[in-house]
Amino acid sequence: MFPTPIEKSSRTWQLSYQALLPAALVLWLLPLIAVAVFSIKPDADFTTGNYWGLPTSFEFVNNYGKVFFQSDMPRYLMNSVLITVPTMIGCVVLSSMTGFALGVYKFRSNIWIFFMFVAGNFVPFQILMVPVRDLTLDMGLYNTKTGLVFFHIAFQTGFCTLFMRNFIKALPFDLIEVARVEGVAEWKIFWHVVLPLMKPALAAMAVLIFTFIWNDYFWAVVLTQGAESQPVTAGITSFNAQYRAAYHLMSAGSIVAALPPVAMFFLMQKHFIAGLTLGAVK
């Protein structure tokens, strides 16, 4: 098996592995560590060039206090929640139904409809920038959270359908046949037979979509403008001042903005890994 599991390698290699791993980890996390340290430094540390040293004064309360009480950060965070959660629910609901239809029913052009969903994933989303912006404008959804939610649901459903359809395809079809023989209505089969079996996939997908949407920057900048609708990823730039960037506040803001997806990852680690591999096997 490649790579050889570490337990089976020689003792010296195991030791050097154990020694190198923390070093590599620190190196890899260095930018993140720098951001974390900067978030508790005073502004003057940037001007004096104290990038990597210890903070000259400990400004944790001050910086984070400013982020939470003197900026629009709480509002941006709330916007992020109001954009991410509806998108997550919308995607899961829609794609479990499309996945069911494409996975269970044999009809002509089934495969073509499925391909269309898949093909949607191959469209580089940047080229949609101008048409989508015009579309939301015409629909009166420009600069609203609703507009962003609709677009995200529409765009993410392609990936989710692929994911769901493959998962349902892998379920034992006999279960559905048996239910049909018993005369159970199709929507009841979906609700009582298939949906309970899909729970791991639903959880994995919800976690994935949450992180995708929370971390989205591109569409947040294209479709919204201002604190009333922008999510936190776009809101962090509001610490960019007219002449200079408030790096200490931006760092604190980034840490706050990064916490929900990180927390999500650690709490739902099992589902997250399942989500990344589920679609890949079939």
Binding site: L137, Y142, Q225, A234, S238
Partner: peptide, 20 residues
């Protein structure tokens, strides 16, 4: 009053002058 981040404003102005 809507206050927009100074850098973002530079790109958004084209947008809102025509649209909104």
């Amino acid at each position: 009053l809507t206050v927009i981040d100074r850098e973002a404003y530079k790109t958004q102005i084209r947008n809102f002058l025509t649209a909104n």
